[in-house]
Design a protein around this nucleic acid. Structure first.
Lengths: 154, 154
DNA sequence: ATGGGTGCAAAGGATTTGCAACATT
DNA sequence: AATGTTGCAAATCCTTTGCACCCAT
C-alpha cells in the first residue's frame, strides 16, 4: 500500500523537484543545483519574474548564487525551450515557467502582466502561411490600460 | 483639369510627405522636421529598422540629427501608436511604420524579420477574454529557423 | 584528470537624463 | 516672449565576457 503510493507519486510527479528535474532532462539540459533551484522557482511562481526577481527570490536561500548564473541559466532555458521569454515590453523582459501556449496582456500603466488562457493562440500550418519556415515558439501579446488602472484614473 | 488632379492628389495623399504629415497629425503628434523625416523613412521602408538603422539611414542626409532625437521620436511614435514596436527578440528591438495588424516571424539564426500577412491576428472581445481590460495593441510573434538558414545547415 | 558549470570583476552596449541652444508660435 | 524640441555629453542600467575556481564524472 505504501509502496504503491510511492510508485503512483513517482509516476505522477507530485513534487516540484520531480517536475523540475523532468523538465530539464526532457529538454536536454543537464541538471545542476542552481538550474534545479531556478526551474523549481519558475514552476512554483507563474508570476512572470524578471532576472532580477529570480535573483532576489533565490539569493536569500542560496547566497552563493550569482546574477551571472541566473542570466546564463535563463538564456539556456530559453534556447532549449524549457521556459518562455516574455518580451511584451522591451523594458521589462521576463520569463514564464508555464510553457503551454497562452496569450499575455501587459498594462502600460502599472506594468502588470496577465495570463489570458481563453484567447486562442493561432496554430501554424507550415506550408501555407509560414512559407516553409520552421516555428519553435509563438507569442500573442496584448497591451493597453488594465481595468484597475482605468478605475484609478477616473 | 490640372486643378482637379491637384485636388485628387491631395485627397488621396500620393506623396510620402503627405502621408507622413497625416499620420502624425491624426495620432496627435506635432510635426517637426525631424519627426517628419523619421516618419517618411518608416513609411518608405517597411524593413523593421532598429534605432541604429534609422539613425544610419537619415544621418547622411540630415547631419545634425542626433541619436537621442531618434530615441525620443520613436518613444513618442510608440506611445501615440504612430508606429509599432517589434520586441520579438529582446536584443533586436525594431519598429514598423505599417500599423495595420499583421504577424511577424523572427529567424533565430540570421535575425531576419518577416511579415506574415496571411496569419490572422486574433481580434479581441473585451468583456469575455480580456476581462474588461482596454487593448491598444496586439502583437503576434513566431520564432524559429527560416527556410534559407535551414537550407544552409544541410 | 577532464569538461562543464559557477561566480567575481570588468567591459561593453544600449538607453536615458540634464541642460543649454534652438526653432516655432 | 513662451513653449516645446533638439542635440551634446554624461550618467545609468542591463547584459555579456574573461578568467579562475570548483564540482562531478
Amino acid at each position: 500500500m505504501s509502496y504503491l503510493c510511492t510508485v503512483i507519486n513517482h509516476h505522477s510527479m507530485n513534487t516540484t523537484k520531480e517536475k523540475a528535474y523532468a523538465r530539464l532532462t526532457e529538454k536536454g539540459i543537464k541538471p545542476s543545483v542552481q538550474r534545479m533551484a531556478i526551474m523549481e522557482f519558475l514552476m512554483e511562481n507563474f508570476t512572470h519574474p524578471t532576472i532580477e526577481d529570480i535573483y532576489q527570490a533565490l539569493h536569500p536561500i542560496m547566497p552563493t548564487l550569482s546574477k551571472t548564473t541566473v542570466y546564463n541559466t535563463m538564456r539556456l532555458f530559453a534556447e532549449y525551450q524549457a521556459a518562455q521569454v516574455i518580451s511584451i515590453d522591451d523594458h521589462h523582459i521576463c520569463y514564464d515557467g508555464n510553457i503551454t501556449p497562452h496569450a499575455h496582456y501587459y498594462c502600460d500603466r502599472c506594468g502588470k502582466i496577465i495570463d489570458l488562457y481563453d484567447v486562442p493562440v493561432p496554430r501554424l500550418r507550415k506550408t501555407t502561411e509560414l512559407q516553409g519556415h520552421d516555428v519553435n515558439s509563438v507569442q500573442l501579446y496584448y497591451r493597453g490600460v488594465c481595468k484597475d488602472c482605468k478605475k484609478n484614473e477616473n
